[in-house]
Amino acid sequence: MLDKVVLIASVMLAIALLLNLYRLVKGPSLPDRILALDTMYINTIALIVLLGVSQRSLIFFEAAMLIAMMGFVGTIAISKYILRGDIIE
């Protein structure tokens, strides 16, 4: 039963990622695009956790952690660039 649930949940997350992609491409303003990118990172983390459950392996948790860190740093860097026109002052 759990395999089917994992399949349904990954389909839901795939739809969520497509919706984020739509906002990323269309987004009228720059912050909309950053927000869409940030949400994509979060949905990817959820997808990787799901992959870990379906493969019954704890190794994927480290990948999820790394993506969380990279996503955070990326979001801060782009926003900082918009705010100051420079990343490292």
Partner: peptide
């Protein structure tokens, strides 16, 4: 426990989906 895990995973996926629907 299997039912609990299934319910939690579905709940999480549902809220992620609703968040993305809100984004659009």
């Amino acid at each position: 426990i299997e039912y609990m895990v299934a319910a939690l995973i579905l709940l999480g996926a549902l809220f992620a989906l609703i968040g993305s629907i809100g984004l659009v």
